[in-house]
Design a protein around this nucleic acid. Structure first.
Lengths: 214, 214
DNA sequence: GACGCTGAGACACAGTGTGTCTTATCGTCT
DNA sequence: AGACGATAAGACACACTGTGTCTCAGCGTC
């Protein structure tokens, strides 16, 4: 609990300077071209025009810290765009459907993500599932809970968003024949029951009944 | 002189086995994805399903030898395709124009070449100009001199082919606003004078007058 | 059963990227 | 003009990783 709070507050620790942005841009470009594992700090330095020394100054800890910053930045950009797309929704269903559709479309149109998935599936998948998923869900919650406020209590919204985020990523990574989540009507048809169940069940009993006995 | 002969005869030293082809395929794929400098033998081994030990067995000398074989194979494939495209030409001009046009189109459609040029201009350019150009010209001569035989003496054809190969590569690397060598009519209009001059001058006096005095 | 071929792994070595320095250079502010 | 902060450039030791060469085991073929 404490961890989560400190995590959330430290999510926007410092607005990045222009030079840091340039470094991250270069890192994004390089990793898209060569894959995360094959990029060197030197590549990023050359590509950004920022000296290696300065990169270490800005991102003490080197590559790991740098790419962590990059992931945070990209994630924030992603959800900032998502928010502007869905802010005007006038019902819970609208909000959720449009969020899923917009997110899926963004993911599908992301050339960098596609390169990463192609050239380094391990790393990229990790950032979409095990390692990165909690953060993604946290960002999704921070973005969407306020927008869901008029329709739903934060606690219930949180559970629905968690579910939808997982579904979105799963259907992005392994599209189903049955539903195309980039198509709004299709997505609405598919998501309506899910939303109904999740929303309905929410207030009654916890979504994860205690199974620690088995 | 002696060198050239030995070079030509050693150009087709051994037909590659299926497993060697697989290795080269993998090398091509890997280098297209990551760039020549970033590919490891391990990548190629994994990608081809051939063990590292075997790769060194087939290409003693490692990466350098392997990629040399790859370049030879690609070059041969290129000119084999070119020959089938232009074999039916019924005049010298036809032959030369169609060769240039076909070659230019092939170069422009070559995704691997494009990747290499994008990610590692130095290496790729070297193979198209300083280091690789003599070989390209040699292959072009071997391919086209026989086809030009009905219209032109080998010695003259050799000089014309040399010239056209250089022009083709130059216009591929730095296209001109004035002429589009992928367009046959355009190329014909552009090349006709060149062909006339080169062919005409050939029989009269050497194309490289002795300037050793300066 | 002998043979050839391939994969798997160990090995020393060289090369290169890393992360941390120090120093030089630039632009800005006072 | 001088002082200051920020950045580039380069040196450095270190660790890691890719290389090239082994040896050995497994497999199929003759």
């Amino acid at each position: 609990m404490c961890l989560i709070v400190s995590d959330v507050t430290s999510d926007t620790p410092a607005p990045l300077s222009a030079i840091e942005q340039r470094v991250l841009d270069a890192a994004l470009e390089c990793s898209a071209r060569w894959g995360f594992a094959r990029v060197t700090i030197d590549d990023i330095a050359r590509s950004s025009g920022v000296s290696r020394a300065s990169i270490y100054r800005f991102f003490p800890g080197g590559k790991e810290v740098l790419f962590e910053s990059l992931r945070v930045r990209e994630l924030e950009a992603f959800f900032t765009e998502l928010r502007t797309e869905v802010a005007a929704s006038e019902s819970l269903e609208d909000l959720m459907v449009r969020s899923v559709v917009t997110a899926t479309r963004c993911l599908r149109n992301d050339a960098h993500l596609a390169s990463m998935l192609a050239s380094e599936p391990g790393e990229a998948l990790g950032q979409l599932t095990v390692d990165g998923l909690p953060r993604i869900i946290r960002m999704a919650s921070m973005t969407l809970i306020p927008l869901a406020r008029p329709f739903m209590a934060p606690h219930d919204a949180s559970r629905v968003i968690d579910l939808l985020a997982r579904l979105t990523i799963s259907y992005f990574l392994a599209p189903s024949e049955d539903v195309d989540l980039t198509d709004e009507a299709d997505a609405r048809r598919f998501l309506a029951p899910v939303l109904a169940v999740a929303a309905g069940a929410g207030s009654e009993h916890p979504i994860t009944p205690d199974r620690s006995s088995r």
